[in-house]
Each structure stands twice: as structure tokens, then as C-alpha cells.
Amino acid sequence: MPGAAYAGPVSDQPRPARRTSGWVVGRVAGAPIVLAPSWVVAAVVLTVVLAPAVRGWAPGMVGARVYVVALVFVVLLFASVLVHEIAHGLVARARGQQPQEFVLTLLGGHTSFGAAAATPGTNALVAVAGPVANLVLAGGFLVAGLAVGRDQLVGVLLLAGAFSNGFVGLFNLLPGLPLDGGAVLQSLVWAVTGRRHTGTVVAAWCGRLVAVGVFAVAFALPFALGGRPTLTDAVWGGLIGAFIWSGASGAIRAARTQDAVDQLTVERVGRRAAAVGHTDSVAQARAVAAAAGAQDVVVLAPDGRPAAYVDVAAASSVPADLAGTTPVTTVAVTLPGGAVVDGTLVGPALLDALGRASRHSPVVVAVAHGRVVGLVRVPDVVAALRA
């Protein structure tokens, strides 16, 4: 498997806004092209691994020129991977997804976006764009290589570029996440079932099967054919198989999280709350909460805005004989402005609103149709998503 490189689209889940560490070498479609430090390792290793092949292509070549030619081929290989990733980004941008970065890494590259594809069609088109770009490049290299001829070193390099691009394009069309073919399968199942979560889980399990297949081809097939796997094939087969298995497993975990986000409601992550006026007593607050079956109490300002919430422990410590004369504000925690969300929101919209509100306070009031309906605490949201 010398010269093989993985190239794939963004995962089903959006990546964090923080940029991957590495060197920015340019920008395309408003996103940086990043060379990760591991890319240098890959370039050096591939150059050394390919040097014997270059000697076979050009027996008369000796010395440093062998490694220069090998390095040129490696650069062409990763340039092809970059074209693959840029194709993802350009199609995504045309479909309303803004790419965040294009990254070249040890095993190839990936493209990340700020948000997942909104529809199965967009998801499939973005995914298939990368392999199509490689197959087009493979055709171009093949025509040019045949025109130059295999007796010329340039022709051999062009034909090797045709093989590499053809391999990258076809390999990435295998039907399993995190490969592009897996994203196409994910989109198909998503379109049929109407659930992104189902599509992701099916495609991710297929990705695990692909990983097992890569291991089998790299290690078991040579023995079945009466030989032994080469060190190069064993190393690359192991790395790529492990990477695909890891990516598929990550997709399954991400799908569970996404499913939890899609089902997010105030009722799931919050506690029912009732509202009282700022002049009411602790006894009145207790009575209002009991009548509404609420677990929390929100104190309203004179203008009707949620201004505070009752500290349950502090309120419980007030003796019954003093509750009628103790102002509820004495056992309340002030809420800063902005610590309010629309209680009718669900799913990602609710999570986004809670994220903005939690910048002001770890406790957020949910208001629906002008009425306080719940109190949401950030740790409860995190626990619900993890569960």
C-alpha cells in the first residue's frame, strides 16, 4: 500500500471552532489550509519508503536524486489529497456550509465545517465531491502519462499519480464512515428513515466492517496467497484500519450525542418552575409552587422580568412560623440579564439558546408565551447529553 493516503469529509458532527495546530500555507473558500506537524512525518517516511521504487523506475538514477524524485511524488500525492479536500469545501460552500479549515495530516487530510449538513442531499454531494475530484485527476494523469511514455521518468511519475489518485478516489468511496462512501450511505439511510441518527449508526457500523476488511487485506490475504505481508503494507494497513475503526466508533458516539440534542426540551433538562412577585413572602412562594406542582420558584421584577430564583436550601431553612413574614427576595439568587431562553425551543435551537444564556449565568429561566415554565441548570444539560 505504498503511497496510500486517507482523504475524507467532515464528520457528521461539526468540529470545535479552535483551529488545528500546524502551519497555515494558504486559504481557499475563506478557510485556511493547515499542514499538521504529523504531515512532515508522513512526507519523510513516504519519501524513504518510495526511494526503492524510484530506483526501479529509473535504474540509472543514484544518490540524492532518487530521494528528490520520491519527494516530488509524495508532494504530488498530498496535493491530490488537498484537491480532494478543497472539492469537499467548494461544494459545501455552494450548498450553504462554510468550511472552517482544510488539514493535511499523517494519513492524508480532512475538511471541517462549522455545522453539519442540513439535508441528506447536501451531505451526499459534499461527500462524493472529493472522490470525484481524485478520479478526474487520475484520468488526467493517466492521459498525460501515456502521452509522455513509460520510458521517461516524468511519464512514470504521471502514471504513478494516476494510480494514487485512482486509489484514493475509489478507496474513499467504500461504504463506511468516516470514508466518503460512508457519508453517502449515511445520507441514503437518513433520506429513507428521516433520521440522521439512524443513517450515522448504520454507516458507522459499516465503517467498522471496512476497517476489519483493511486489516484482513493487509495481514491475512498475503498468508492466504502463500506469501507474507510486507512491512510497508502491514504498517499502512494497520494505521489506516485503526484510523477507520476509530473514526467509525467516534461517529457512533457523535450520533448518540446528536440524537440527545435533537430530543432536547426544557422538560427533559429543566425543572418545572412557578413565578412569584418580588414583594411576596416565602410562605406565598411555597404555596404557589405547591399549587403548580413546581420544584423551583422564580422571582419577577416589577416589570415582570425574571429577576431571581429561590435558593431551595435557603428557603427550606426558614421556619414555618417566620415564612409568612420573610420576603422571598431574602432567599433568592439574583439573575443577570440575558439568563432567559424561549421555553418553546427544542433540539439544536434550544441547545444554542442555552449556550448563549449560560454565558451570563449557570442557571437559566425558561419562558414560554410570556409565562415562566422552568429553571434549567447547565450541569443538568451536560448530564442529559452524556446520558
Rank of each mutant, 00 (worst) to 15 (best):
L157S: 02
G324W: 09
R55Y: 08
A234I: 11
G250R: 10
V154G: 06
L153Q: 11
V148T: 15
V72Y: 07
P37T: 11
V103W: 06
A211W: 00
L104A: 15
L221E: 02
A87G: 04
L231D: 03
A339L: 13
V299L: 11
A79C: 08
R208A: 12
A314G: 04
V298S: 00
G121N: 06
L300A: 10
T279L: 09
W236K: 05
S361V: 04
N123Q: 08
T20I: 08
A79D: 00
G182R: 07
M1D: 00
V235M: 07
L351T: 09
F73A: 13
A323L: 05
A116N: 04
L157Q: 04
A301Y: 03
A313L: 12
N123I: 01
P379C: 02
G213P: 06
V340Y: 07
D352I: 09
T344K: 08
A308Y: 06
P16T: 08
V28D: 00
T47W: 10
G155M: 12
F78K: 01
V128L: 10
V212H: 03
V282N: 03
H110Y: 15
L300R: 01
G114W: 02
A183R: 10
P2V: 12
Q100W: 03
P222F: 08
E267L: 14
L385N: 09
G199V: 14
